[in-house]
Protein backbone atom coordinates (compact mmCIF):
# COMPACT_ATOMS: atom_id res chain seq x y z
CA UNK A 1 0.00 0.00 0.00
CA UNK A 2 1.44 3.43 -0.90
CA UNK A 3 2.44 5.66 1.98
CA UNK A 4 0.39 8.85 2.13
CA UNK A 5 1.99 12.24 2.55
CA UNK A 6 0.69 15.60 3.72
CA UNK A 7 0.55 18.74 1.61
CA UNK A 8 -0.93 21.52 3.82
CA UNK A 9 -0.77 24.09 1.00
CA UNK A 10 -3.50 22.20 -0.87
CA UNK A 11 -5.70 21.35 2.11
CA UNK A 12 -8.16 24.21 1.74
CA UNK A 13 -8.82 23.64 -1.96
CA UNK A 14 -9.03 19.89 -1.60
CA UNK A 15 -10.77 19.29 1.69
CA UNK A 16 -12.46 22.48 2.94
CA UNK A 17 -15.83 21.63 1.36
CA UNK A 18 -15.72 18.02 2.50
CA UNK A 19 -14.87 18.92 6.08
CA UNK A 20 -17.37 21.78 6.08
CA UNK A 21 -20.20 19.46 5.02
CA UNK A 22 -19.17 16.98 7.67
CA UNK A 23 -19.14 19.69 10.33
CA UNK A 24 -22.29 21.59 9.39
CA UNK A 25 -24.51 18.53 9.76
CA UNK A 26 -23.20 18.09 13.27
CA UNK A 27 -23.22 21.65 14.55
CA UNK A 28 -25.91 23.15 12.32
CA UNK A 29 -24.28 26.57 12.28
CA UNK A 30 -22.32 27.92 9.35
CA UNK A 31 -19.97 30.09 11.37
CA UNK A 32 -19.15 27.39 13.90
CA UNK A 33 -18.63 24.83 11.13
CA UNK A 34 -16.18 27.21 9.48
CA UNK A 35 -14.30 27.74 12.71
CA UNK A 36 -14.09 24.00 13.26
CA UNK A 37 -12.71 23.45 9.76
CA UNK A 38 -10.17 26.19 10.25
CA UNK A 39 -9.15 24.79 13.66
CA UNK A 40 -8.87 21.32 12.12
CA UNK A 41 -6.38 22.54 9.52
CA UNK A 42 -4.34 24.37 12.14
CA UNK A 43 -4.35 21.35 14.45
CA UNK A 44 -3.36 19.15 11.50
CA UNK A 45 -0.50 21.46 10.71
CA UNK A 46 0.72 21.49 14.30
CA UNK A 47 0.63 17.72 14.60
CA UNK A 48 1.78 16.84 11.10
CA UNK A 49 4.85 15.11 12.55
CA UNK A 50 2.51 12.55 14.11
CA UNK A 51 1.08 11.58 10.70
CA UNK A 52 2.24 8.06 9.95
CA UNK A 53 1.02 7.91 6.36
CA UNK A 54 -1.15 4.85 6.94
CA UNK A 55 -4.42 6.71 6.29
CA UNK A 56 -5.18 9.20 3.56
CA UNK A 57 -4.86 12.92 4.24
CA UNK A 58 -8.64 13.30 4.22
CA UNK A 59 -9.25 10.45 6.68
CA UNK A 60 -6.63 11.91 9.00
CA UNK A 61 -8.16 15.38 8.84
CA UNK A 62 -11.65 13.98 9.43
CA UNK A 63 -10.42 12.20 12.55
CA UNK A 64 -9.12 15.55 13.85
CA UNK A 65 -12.41 17.24 12.96
CA UNK A 66 -14.35 14.56 14.86
CA UNK A 67 -12.38 15.44 18.00
CA UNK A 68 -13.02 19.12 17.38
CA UNK A 69 -16.78 18.51 17.14
CA UNK A 70 -16.73 16.50 20.39
CA UNK A 71 -14.70 19.27 22.08
CA UNK A 72 -17.20 21.84 20.81
CA UNK A 73 -20.13 19.99 22.38
CA UNK A 74 -18.23 19.47 25.62
CA UNK A 75 -17.54 23.19 25.72
CA UNK A 76 -21.14 24.25 25.13
CA UNK A 77 -22.49 21.63 27.51
CA UNK A 78 -20.28 22.99 30.26
CA UNK A 79 -21.97 26.34 29.67
CA UNK A 80 -25.44 24.85 30.04
CA UNK A 81 -27.78 26.80 32.24
CA UNK A 82 -25.82 29.97 31.75
CA UNK A 83 -27.47 30.76 28.45
CA UNK A 84 -30.39 33.11 28.33
CA UNK A 85 -33.41 31.44 26.77
CA UNK A 86 -35.86 33.68 25.00
CA UNK A 87 -39.20 32.28 24.09
CA UNK A 88 -40.21 35.18 21.90
CA UNK A 89 -38.63 37.78 19.66
CA UNK A 90 -37.00 40.54 21.61
CA UNK A 91 -36.60 43.05 18.77
CA UNK A 92 -39.01 44.91 16.54
CA UNK A 93 -37.62 43.58 13.25
CA UNK A 94 -38.89 40.05 13.79
CA UNK A 95 -42.48 39.47 14.61
CA UNK A 96 -44.60 36.38 15.04
CA UNK A 97 -44.50 33.32 17.18
CA UNK A 98 -40.86 32.47 17.73
CA UNK A 99 -41.58 29.03 19.15
CA UNK A 100 -43.85 27.98 16.30
CA UNK A 101 -41.32 29.09 13.72
CA UNK A 102 -38.50 27.26 15.45
CA UNK A 103 -40.26 23.94 15.76
CA UNK A 104 -41.77 23.93 12.28
CA UNK A 105 -40.00 21.27 10.26
CA UNK A 106 -40.58 19.44 7.01
CA UNK A 107 -43.17 16.82 7.87
CA UNK A 108 -41.75 14.31 5.39
CA UNK A 109 -38.12 14.48 6.54
CA UNK A 110 -36.98 11.63 8.73
CA UNK A 111 -33.72 10.89 10.52
CA UNK A 112 -33.04 8.13 7.97
CA UNK A 113 -33.38 10.63 5.12
CA UNK A 114 -30.94 12.95 6.83
CA UNK A 115 -28.42 10.16 7.31
CA UNK A 116 -28.79 9.02 3.72
CA UNK A 117 -28.37 12.60 2.55
CA UNK A 118 -25.20 12.99 4.55
CA UNK A 119 -23.74 9.81 3.09
CA UNK A 120 -24.72 10.95 -0.38
CA UNK A 121 -23.27 14.40 0.22
CA UNK A 122 -19.94 12.95 1.32
CA UNK A 123 -19.95 10.43 -1.54
CA UNK A 124 -20.41 13.26 -4.06
CA UNK A 125 -17.60 15.27 -2.47
CA UNK A 126 -15.33 12.20 -2.42
CA UNK A 127 -16.02 11.68 -6.11
CA UNK A 128 -15.29 15.33 -6.86
CA UNK A 129 -12.01 14.83 -5.07
CA UNK A 130 -11.12 12.08 -7.54
CA UNK A 131 -11.72 14.00 -10.76
CA UNK A 132 -9.53 16.64 -12.37
CA UNK A 133 -9.15 19.43 -9.73
CA UNK A 134 -9.86 22.23 -12.20
CA UNK A 135 -12.96 20.48 -13.50
CA UNK A 136 -14.10 19.85 -9.93
CA UNK A 137 -13.64 23.52 -8.97
CA UNK A 138 -15.59 24.70 -12.02
CA UNK A 139 -18.30 22.12 -11.45
CA UNK A 140 -18.66 23.13 -7.78
CA UNK A 141 -18.93 26.79 -8.61
CA UNK A 142 -21.50 26.21 -11.34
CA UNK A 143 -23.55 23.42 -9.78
CA UNK A 144 -23.22 23.72 -6.03
CA UNK A 145 -22.78 27.47 -5.62
CA UNK A 146 -25.20 28.08 -8.52
CA UNK A 147 -23.01 30.75 -10.12
CA UNK A 148 -24.05 31.89 -13.59
CA UNK A 149 -22.05 30.99 -16.67
CA UNK A 150 -20.52 34.44 -17.08
CA UNK A 151 -19.26 34.55 -13.49
CA UNK A 152 -17.63 31.12 -13.77
CA UNK A 153 -16.03 32.04 -17.11
CA UNK A 154 -14.63 35.26 -15.63
CA UNK A 155 -13.32 33.53 -12.51
CA UNK A 156 -11.52 30.80 -14.46
CA UNK A 157 -10.80 32.84 -17.59
CA UNK A 158 -12.43 30.38 -19.97
CA UNK A 159 -14.95 30.72 -22.78
CA UNK A 160 -18.57 29.51 -22.37
CA UNK A 161 -17.97 26.66 -24.81
CA UNK A 162 -14.94 25.56 -22.76
CA UNK A 163 -17.08 25.74 -19.67
CA UNK A 164 -19.70 23.39 -21.12
CA UNK A 165 -17.05 20.92 -22.26
CA UNK A 166 -15.58 20.91 -18.74
CA UNK A 167 -19.03 20.59 -17.16
CA UNK A 168 -19.78 17.66 -19.46
CA UNK A 169 -16.54 15.89 -18.53
CA UNK A 170 -17.06 16.54 -14.83
CA UNK A 171 -20.65 15.28 -14.92
CA UNK A 172 -19.67 12.13 -16.84
CA UNK A 173 -16.82 11.37 -14.41
CA UNK A 174 -18.99 12.13 -11.40
CA UNK A 175 -21.83 9.92 -12.64
CA UNK A 176 -19.41 7.04 -13.25
CA UNK A 177 -17.88 7.45 -9.79
CA UNK A 178 -21.26 7.69 -8.05
CA UNK A 179 -22.46 4.59 -9.85
CA UNK A 180 -19.62 2.73 -8.15
CA UNK A 181 -19.95 4.38 -4.74
CA UNK A 182 -23.62 5.09 -4.36
CA UNK A 183 -26.06 3.45 -6.75
Amino acid sequence: MPKHTLDPNKWVDKYADYLFNYAIVRVNDREIANDLVSETFLAGLNSKDNFLGKASERTWLISILKRKVIDYYRRINSQKGKAEVRINYSDDENTGEWLEEQVADDFDRSAEDEMENEELRLAILECLDEINPKHAAIFKMKTIDGADTEAVCNEFKITPSNLWVIIHRARTALAACLEKKWL
Binding site: V12, A16, D17, V37, L45
Partner: peptide, 26 residues
Protein backbone atom coordinates in the same frame (compact mmCIF):
# COMPACT_ATOMS: atom_id res chain seq x y z
CA UNK B 1 -28.93 13.38 -6.45
CA UNK B 2 -27.01 16.64 -6.14
CA UNK B 3 -30.18 18.48 -5.16
CA UNK B 4 -31.11 15.77 -2.69
CA UNK B 5 -27.65 15.88 -1.10
CA UNK B 6 -28.06 19.59 -0.37
CA UNK B 7 -24.32 20.17 -0.48
CA UNK B 8 -23.14 23.31 1.22
CA UNK B 9 -19.78 24.64 0.24
CA UNK B 10 -17.51 27.16 1.90
CA UNK B 11 -17.73 30.47 0.06
CA UNK B 12 -14.60 31.72 -1.74
CA UNK B 13 -14.19 34.36 0.96
CA UNK B 14 -14.39 31.80 3.75
CA UNK B 15 -11.81 29.69 1.93
CA UNK B 16 -9.57 32.71 1.47
CA UNK B 17 -9.76 33.43 5.21
CA UNK B 18 -8.89 29.86 6.15
CA UNK B 19 -6.05 29.85 3.60
CA UNK B 20 -4.70 33.06 5.06
CA UNK B 21 -4.70 31.66 8.60
CA UNK B 22 -3.05 28.47 7.42
CA UNK B 23 -0.44 30.39 5.43
CA UNK B 24 0.46 32.51 8.44
CA UNK B 25 0.81 29.40 10.57
CA UNK B 26 3.00 27.68 7.95
Amino acid sequence: LIKKARIKGCTSEEKRNIKERLKQEI
